[in-house]
Nucleic acid binder design. Sequence first.
DNA 1: ATCAAACTACGACCCTCATCGAACTAACAG
DNA 2: CTGTTAGTTCGATGAGGGTCGTAGTTTGAT
Lengths: 116, 116
Amino acid sequence: MADVTETLTDAHDGCLPEPSPEEFRLAAVLHALADPVRLRIVTELSSGQHEMACQAFALPVTKSTSTHHFRVLREAGVIRQHRRGTARMSVLREEELERRFPGLLTSILRAARLQP
Amino acid sequence: MADVTETLTDAHDGCLPEPSPEEFRLAAVLHALADPVRLRIVTELSSGQHEMACQAFALPVTKSTSTHHFRVLREAGVIRQHRRGTARMSVLREEELERRFPGLLTSILRAARLQP
DNA sequence: ATCAAACTACGACCCTCATCGAACTAACAG
DNA sequence: CTGTTAGTTCGATGAGGGTCGTAGTTTGAT
């Protein structure tokens, strides 16, 4: 599974549309993180490898619902997605969020770890 | 839902039901703050006097909608409300939120000030 | 007691959203 | 090409939420 297939699938056309940091909207970020499933995605992304396929989360929803949640996170600017073979890898946009909304993601992640 | 907190029984029963800090749910707080009107309420509460009547906010919605938003904030634990004459005063629960979710409110308020 | 001010409660409306299933697409292995 | 794996897209659906208007409540003043 942990194959080292050299990435020709680079960051040109495998990337899905995402906002630039200047386009981040606070309400959109808060709304994105106000859902248990999405909060779990972000929590796992922050404490695992910096890149994870959708399947790797084992979410308690169907694939189509899963796609929906990843899109909400991506369109809010919380994650970035690109293809890796048949998989869609997700990455937390930590630095960009930190620059735009200092301390926000950090405090939310800490709060999330404190709760069921 | 109607949690009768025994704190401050001193000020008879002008207080409306509110959760105790242990009952704060992160998703509820984030959802409460993900609305522009409610974010504005909280922002004004944090930068004005520590007590404000609903009317004082001059919100761009009707009174009934206003009541709705204040209730969402109160039930999430973000604000406390008590009567003062015919007015309903609102107070930010800054310390309790800080104890439960350190840095959260602070970073959200800072982010809100950075945006339209 | 009556009146006004400031909210609250209750429906109603419409729109958003989380969810699903089924059909479709993309990438890769044989 | 065939088949598999991993996501996406497209309705549909049902719950929830933001908005309003109207009616009711509470408090203080006259």
